[in-house]
Amino acid sequence: MNNKLVINYIPGPTVLHKLTGFTKVLLFLVMTVAIIATYDIRILIPLLIINIIEIISMKPNYKPICTMFLITFVTVTLLGNVMLFIVSPDAGLNNVGANNVIWTSANGKFYLSKEFLWYMLAVFIKRTTSFASVMAFALATTPSEFASGLNKCGLPYKICTIVSLAYRTIPDIANDFINIRNSMMMRGVELSKKASVGKRLKNTVLILVPLIFTSFGKVSSIANAMDLRGYGKNKKRTWYAEHEQTKWDPVIRTLTVMLAVAAVYYIIRYRIIDPWPVNIWCPWLSRDEIVQTEKELFILNWFKKQ
């Protein structure tokens, strides 16, 4: 159970661990925006390499990370691609811009094109980069640092308290959940696949009610303790976790700002001024060869008319 979580509560010994919360949050936000905004494998691969270097530099326990990656890979990538193949085999045509068919099924209903494979690769790289950046952030940051960093970014401190408190109570609540589930199973409440879906849903109520009561029962004691220490009295608040900058902080912040500038430049240059005709760049297709298809979804057409 605890083996599965990668949340850190004690700041670790390496350079990245010791940075101030603001630097970490800033790096993570810029990284996330850059990953979201680009679908270009030429940008995503460097970002992926940066994130992997970050993870390696922190010398983490690799076991939970690998387990998580495998689970995500099987559930998201494999199942997602199988579904994509069945639902829209022309995703390659829509997103990459051509259809070089390399395999067709006997009845001609399904086909596989080079561009479809390229699309799958691009989506996979994007998901993996996203996964790596989240992992790097989760490994480097303690809940209090996360909250102090968010507050320095301009979020009201009450929201920051919510984030850090929630982040911090997760192991407790997860333990409660497992305990309640195990004791209910001991008493013969069937939750496995032996019971029908309706029965399982009904039995879930039996677990959720005590879980809700124990979790929300803590609210008043925590709130009273915070009130007694004067929480929420002033408009501002200082953070115990926010410390002096280390000598690496300015370096990382400069790099982050450079990354942000590069991302903004890329977005303006390649997505607004001179957009590539389709979503994903592909090495063997030049601009003239690309076929643009109309998106057949009603909501988008409705937006175009506006």
């Binding site: 559930t75 998201v76 199942l79 997602g80 579904m83 009450k158 308290t161 919510i162 984030v163 408190l165 929630a166 982040y167 109570t169 997760i170 609540i173 997860a174 959940f177 497992i178 879930t204 879980l211 809700i212 979790s215 929300f216 803590k218 609210v219 008043s220 925590i222 709130a223 915070m226 009130d227 929480y231 929420g232």
Partner: peptide, 27 residues
């Protein structure tokens, strides 16, 4: 303060249930 703590506990509960209280189907 009470609302803030309740929202925080709720968020944690949401996170836990999302990770352990479901049967993944696809993405």
């Amino acid at each position: 303060t009470k609302t803030i703590v309740a929202v925080a506990i709720g968020a944690a509960l949401f996170g836990v249930l999302m990770n352990y209280g479901g049967i993944p189907v696809f993405t």
